[in-house]
Design a protein around this nucleic acid. Structure first.
Lengths: 236, 236
DNA sequence: AAGAATAACTTGTATATACAAGTTGTTTTC
DNA sequence: GAAAACAACTTGTATATACAAGTTATTCTT
């Protein structure tokens, strides 16, 4: 009754947290499968299920006879973490301004992607963010998601958490994949102002649709990215 | 002795082939797990392992109580097929000009990526291509690959074959993954001329490193893309 | 001391089984 | 005839077990 979260999932979440918070260092070994079994009171298939999920996330790398090697991040969803051309460290100190708190709206008249009936009916949650590296704006994103089964979502704080993290943690929504289109454009005045661009400086323009484990629940984002001092980085 | 390929892998390969060749249509259901068990003489965990791999590939989508839905693929490597904003059909009629036939050179002094010792020693093969959609140039790429064990490579024709196809077919080199960095830039005069750009039109600039199944064999590309009428499209 | 064999670990593959939970069509009930 | 109950499917989770295969450190042999 009370135990709707499966065991392998719990172990996965725990290990994931420990990897990301640095309990296990990059390059070191996770406890062996048998150890994890005895410690957490489960059998090997269950433990392996959890580890498989971590492998899929790219957080560990398994080697037969050796163990599970902690791999810290690319942590990209598809393409999309920011790598500073000088140092990639700055990423972790990314600050976020919420320009528009999540609010319920109608879908825009013209939309870059096609919506399902369910999505159309549900209405959409809209939010805008401006993100800073070294106190300079580099990343402006506009997000649309369907208003399906997300209790209290509009009152949550996203200040320093990623949107994905909130969805994963509180609503068990995980990103399965997606598609995106990229262009180089000369931005309009509004974008130019927001990103504090120099005259003639082009921006990366990205339209994305992310599919999730919840049927009919997709996340739509439009991104404007100042690539003067940073680049969009992706590994695959 | 002779049976080094695991059963789940065989089943995976078989189902994969059947999905890609159209034995199962998009949206239809795969045989149930129990059916697959009896047909192929294995147990459910083994069958499920095979199906898990297909899910990871994005070739099927499982639904509890329902079955495994065939999902045909985008099947891109990372980002990088071109989708015309008007019609994506034009892609197939992409023409290629070889501006610089493959030739052996030294590695550039400054290079966007770090090279291994092996790669440095081997020298590099260099080639440039300009690619057209509807007889207009949209895509200019500069490629560097290490000169490791590629007999007769510099004398091959790449006119209408993809570089990857030649590598795969003739040298058993397959792409495992890679990383890339993207920017929006204002191009210099040379690029502007090559891509026949209007004044002030920015281009997408991409640096890529592709890793292959051959240890120490990576492919490095620099791409300039005119995104006025087309977009870079990727799914993941 | 150097190399070969071994033992003790690790993950990989596979079987056999059980019940939970979601979906769908059929049967029963009203 | 319509709604509720049921049965028969589907995939999801989990246990218990066994052996194969790769890695590493130790022990034995030379």
């Amino acid at each position: 009754m009370e135990n709707q979260v499966p065991q392998y999932r719990k172990l996965y979440e725990l290990l994931r947290k420990h990897i990301l918070t640095g309990v296990y260092e990059e390059g070191s070994l996770l406890p062996s499968e048998n150890e994890l079994c005895t410690v957490h009171g489960m059998t090997r298939p269950t433990v392996r299920h959890a580890l498989d999920t971590l492998v899929k996330d790219g957080l560990i790398l398994k080697k037969q006879g050796k163990g599970s090697i902690v791999r810290k991040p690319p942590q990209n969803i598809g393409i999309l973490s920011i790598a500073g051309t000088a140092s990639a460290i700055g990423v972790r100190y990314l600050k976020t301004d919420i320009l528009q708190k999540p609010e319920i709206r109608n879908w825009p008249e013209t939309f870059a992607f096609e919506l399902s009936e369910l999505e159309k009916e549900s209405g959409c949650i809209y939010m805008e963010r401006l993100r800073y590296v070294d106190n300079k704006p580099v990343f402006y994103d506009v997000n649309h998601l369907p208003n399906i089964n997300l209790p209290r979502f509009t009152s949550r704080s996203f200040e320093n958490k990623s949107l994905f993290e909130v969805l994963r943690k509180h609503y068990q929504v995980s990103i399965l994949g997606g598609e995106q289109r990229l262009k180089a454009i000369i931005p309009d005045e509004q974008i130019k102002k927001l990103l504090q661009l120099k005259k003639g400086q082009p921006v990366l323009y990205i339209e994305r649709k992310l599919t999730t484990n919840k049927e009919g629940f997709n996340i739509y984002s439009t991104i404007y990215f100042n690539s003067e001092k940073h680049t969009i980085f992706g590994s695959f």
